[in-house]
Simulated assay, not measured.
Amino acid sequence: MCEVNLVKALGVTPGVKDSLELLEMDEPAESEGEVLVETLAVGLCGTDKEIVSAQYGEAPPGAKHLVLGHENLGRVVSAPEGSGLAEGDLVVGIVRRPDPVPCEACAAGQWDMCRNGKYTEHGIKGLNGFARERFRADADALVKLDRGLERIGVLLEPTTIVAKAWQHAEAIGKRAFYDPKVAVVTGAGPVGLLAALLGVQRGLDVHVYDRVTDGPKPDLVRDLGATYHTDSLTDSGVRADVLIECTGVPSVVMETITEHALDAITCLTGVSSIGKTLPVDVGAANREAVLGNDVVFGSVNANRSHYEAAAAALAKADADWLARLITRRVPLADFGNAFEHEKNDVKVVLDVKEA
């Protein structure tokens, strides 16, 4: 009788609040992909906490559990010849996969712009995530990283979010004369700090806004060469050419839409909670947008080009600065501690592979 190998995995029962548990699952089947990967680490973010609180999350067809973990880093165990990957390679699994139809956008490799909503996402929608000891994927669903990025490679997925934001902002800027000098980032969480990093790499005067007055965030921003603000965008008087909104806080969102330079481009990456209302002078906002040639757009997820751009950005960044974004590393077995917020948390990472 064949012995069945099992892997440890961190999962939830979708729709059941606080159902997070450490599971034992069958070894990933070859039908899931040609490349076998051992998971080194997964990063945790607000999306994971929202799934744990049963706000959303969808298990694979026929499965009871959804394995969490979309931010990931792994090492290739085995890969077929001609795949472009080999044993020992450092890789990151791409989170969103194209819909099976596929729609025009997915067929063009732009599954982040899926037109029919039938895409799947590892650890979020219809596909198990990477918070398991081993997983399988096809080579085209993996991004190879320089082995020197092992300490901070788990930051790749959140970096793809802002790599896309900057790429799209620059594409919009090319509609006409475009020579940005000042950038604003709202929120000094991991995504905001990475957005600021990419702004600094572009030679812009970057201003980051957050309510926190102590802890690691102010120093991380200053050491990046950017300016840290605890006042509001309105009160600071800064008028930016490009704004990347990373909080989802309605009042902050409205500021980024209305407080900026002429011809400004605002990208919204933070997802707001619903049910909160603000008194807004829509006429004034419209007047300013029209007379100022403003653009406001939303951005979510990323395709392979954004993963590659993010990998290039991380490779050229100060590795020690990036490592400081990871403020806590927690073993998989102690997952409960990882989901408890601590005062100075920036990015919390689960170490899936034991040292």
Rank of each mutant, 00 (worst) to 15 (best):
residue 105 A to I: 06
residue 163 A to C: 01
residue 89 D to F: 03
residue 32 E to T: 01
residue 165 A to Q: 09
residue 225 G to V: 07
residue 120 T to V: 12
residue 331 P to S: 10
residue 350 L to H: 03
residue 319 A to V: 03
residue 84 G to S: 13
residue 19 S to F: 10
residue 112 D to A: 09
residue 336 G to Y: 05
residue 39 T to M: 07
residue 317 A to L: 11
residue 271 V to E: 13
residue 8 K to N: 15
residue 105 A to Q: 12
residue 136 R to K: 03
residue 267 C to Y: 08
residue 167 Q to Y: 09
residue 206 V to R: 14
residue 305 S to P: 00
residue 242 V to L: 13
residue 66 L to D: 06
residue 97 R to Q: 03
residue 269 T to Y: 03
residue 325 L to C: 05
residue 216 P to N: 02
residue 155 L to H: 01
residue 139 A to M: 06
residue 38 E to D: 15
residue 95 V to M: 04
residue 57 G to E: 11
residue 338 A to R: 09
residue 215 G to C: 07
residue 31 S to R: 14
residue 207 H to Y: 06
residue 173 G to I: 09
residue 122 H to M: 08
residue 244 I to T: 10
residue 256 T to V: 13
residue 105 A to P: 03
residue 11 G to H: 13
residue 323 A to K: 05
residue 248 G to E: 10
residue 189 G to A: 08
residue 225 G to T: 03
residue 337 N to R: 14
residue 28 P to H: 02
residue 275 G to L: 10
residue 239 R to G: 08
residue 125 K to S: 11
residue 159 T to C: 11
residue 353 K to I: 06
residue 94 I to D: 01
residue 281 D to R: 12
residue 314 L to G: 06
residue 301 N to H: 13
residue 138 D to P: 08
residue 296 V to G: 07
residue 298 G to N: 10
residue 73 L to N: 01
residue 184 V to H: 00
residue 189 G to H: 12
residue 35 V to F: 00
residue 303 N to M: 01
residue 334 D to T: 08
residue 45 C to A: 10
residue 143 V to N: 00
residue 145 L to V: 07
residue 339 F to M: 04
residue 192 G to A: 05
residue 170 E to A: 09
residue 277 T to L: 14
residue 38 E to I: 06
residue 244 I to N: 01
residue 25 M to K: 08
residue 88 G to Q: 09
residue 275 G to P: 02
residue 331 P to Y: 10
residue 228 Y to C: 02
residue 85 L to T: 06
residue 189 G to V: 06
residue 119 Y to D: 14
residue 206 V to Y: 07
residue 67 V to G: 06
residue 87 E to D: 12
residue 86 A to P: 03
residue 194 L to I: 13
residue 189 G to K: 01
residue 206 V to N: 13
residue 107 A to H: 04
residue 133 E to K: 02
residue 173 G to F: 00
residue 96 R to E: 08
residue 204 L to P: 11
residue 3 E to Y: 10
residue 282 V to N: 05
residue 64 K to A: 13
residue 191 V to A: 07
residue 342 E to H: 14
residue 33 G to V: 04
residue 60 P to A: 09
residue 205 D to Q: 05
residue 345 D to F: 08
residue 14 P to V: 12
residue 89 D to S: 01
residue 295 V to K: 09
residue 178 Y to W: 15
residue 93 G to H: 04
residue 223 D to R: 04
residue 92 V to F: 07
residue 70 H to T: 13
residue 39 T to W: 00
residue 117 G to Y: 04
residue 218 P to C: 04
residue 45 C to L: 03
residue 41 A to D: 04
residue 302 A to W: 11
residue 189 G to D: 02
residue 53 S to A: 14
residue 220 L to Y: 11
residue 140 D to W: 11
residue 199 G to T: 10
residue 201 Q to S: 05
residue 307 Y to F: 15
residue 327 T to W: 02
residue 155 L to S: 04
residue 215 G to L: 08
residue 204 L to D: 12
residue 86 A to R: 14
residue 349 V to C: 11
residue 112 D to H: 08
residue 187 G to H: 02
residue 336 G to P: 02
residue 303 N to F: 10
residue 306 H to I: 03
residue 108 A to F: 03
residue 179 D to T: 04
residue 41 A to M: 13
residue 279 P to F: 06
residue 101 V to G: 12
residue 158 P to H: 12
residue 324 R to A: 05
residue 223 D to Q: 14
residue 151 R to K: 15
residue 139 A to Y: 01
residue 197 L to C: 10
residue 313 A to K: 09
residue 261 A to L: 01
